[in-house]
Design a protein around this nucleic acid. Sequence first.
DNA 1: ACATTATTGTGTCCACCGGACACAGTTAAC
DNA 2: GTTAACTGTGTCCGGTGGACACAATAATGT
Lengths: 228, 228
Amino acid sequence: MTELLWGTAQPPSRGPKPAVTLAGIAEAAIRIADAEGLDAVSMQRVADDLPVTKMALYRYVPGKAELVAVMSDLAMGAPPERPELPWREALHAWSMDLYAGFTRHPWLLLSTVGRRLVGPNELTWMDRGVQALTDSGLNGSEQLDAVMVLAGHVRALALQTTSLPGGRQRLTEEAFLGAFAEILTTHGDRFPSLAAAMRSAGQDEQGLEFGLARILDGLEMLITSRKG
Amino acid sequence: MTELLWGTAQPPSRGPKPAVTLAGIAEAAIRIADAEGLDAVSMQRVADDLPVTKMALYRYVPGKAELVAVMSDLAMGAPPERPELPWREALHAWSMDLYAGFTRHPWLLLSTVGRRLVGPNELTWMDRGVQALTDSGLNGSEQLDAVMVLAGHVRALALQTTSLPGGRQRLTEEAFLGAFAEILTTHGDRFPSLAAAMRSAGQDEQGLEFGLARILDGLEMLITSRKG
DNA sequence: ACATTATTGTGTCCACCGGACACAGTTAAC
DNA sequence: GTTAACTGTGTCCGGTGGACACAATAATGT
């Protein structure tokens, strides 16, 4: 389980040379998911892109769940290097980097859900986030919770903004917006506040920065109140 | 598509009496998902709990995606009635109600993801959230974004807290925490900030209220700055 | 009363999925 | 050269969502 994600596998001494590698399998799976969505990633489909048959993949990976975990951690990557910044700027940059990762591989929003195997890259992300708050005066729980709030917001916004190619996508973008508009015009009276808000809204795509600013404001309030 | 969720289907005049109803199908599916997880909800499994065969379900529902949409909107339900409250208390109660809904039907966290058919109950939730902010001085976009931030936080926390029965759950709770602890002890040096934060943390289960307080603080800052 | 017609439920069939397992081929160590 | 470890393949299984033809049912028009 954990050996896979943490690369603690010894190369065997005897036997034929492996035709593929775990990383190669994961990269092929990532290519497929990027192009055709997470649902297109099946053992058969991955094997078709490699010089190997479906069942040979099980020599490298115990099952599909583990493959998804490996490809997810690999696609997530490590957070980009950033210069030392004050906590607020650091967390802002961290959130935008995370968002960028989700837009690069939208299927990560589906594959990294719920209790799952955590890989080193994901932990590195968490570590970087917490690191920005080590000297903030918040205690450990608060640091973790703060990073969770930011990650949750980034996830939610990415989920709302990026279209999931293939995957669990039930509707095309136009069909979705069309159905939404139609409902609000025909049943708008049942949702007066929502309809009013959407009339005066237009599509801003500013939700990410808006929420980020509110959360960071709230954190700043707490931090300054602790210090004062 | 939308006719299903919005109940605009005319009862046919001719032909045999339907043996089941759309609501009955959705309720059966909800029971299964509650007890065995979302992955256990298959056409066959749902039909087994009803006086009908698998293929008969397709007379009521175009496909599985639509069934999931219907059962999700039904399980979500309408937000409970609340007395008129100031916006902050109203949004706090709204968030806790939403969280309660997710804990009642954890599989909603998986089924209500990405672009999808939106039902009347989901829109009612959104409307209630926005309604709390109509007199706040925020414009339409800001009201929508604010509600989205809260919903995202509630989702993230519910996802982190509640265990998804069956479903996409790859690990049991103990296995998850055990693997996590093992990793942090063996590779803790690679994640110094995270390890330090978790050492001084213990498990609080306070993440929901913590994040809620920060977000509402941030909103309050914005609202008072607009009014002043 | 009868024929028509719309509608429902059933059974069969298909492609695909994840995975168990036995087996043959390959390679290094003894 | 023999043995033992290891890799890749083919076959098989139960399960999934769904297409489709067909029989049973019930209200309508005559």
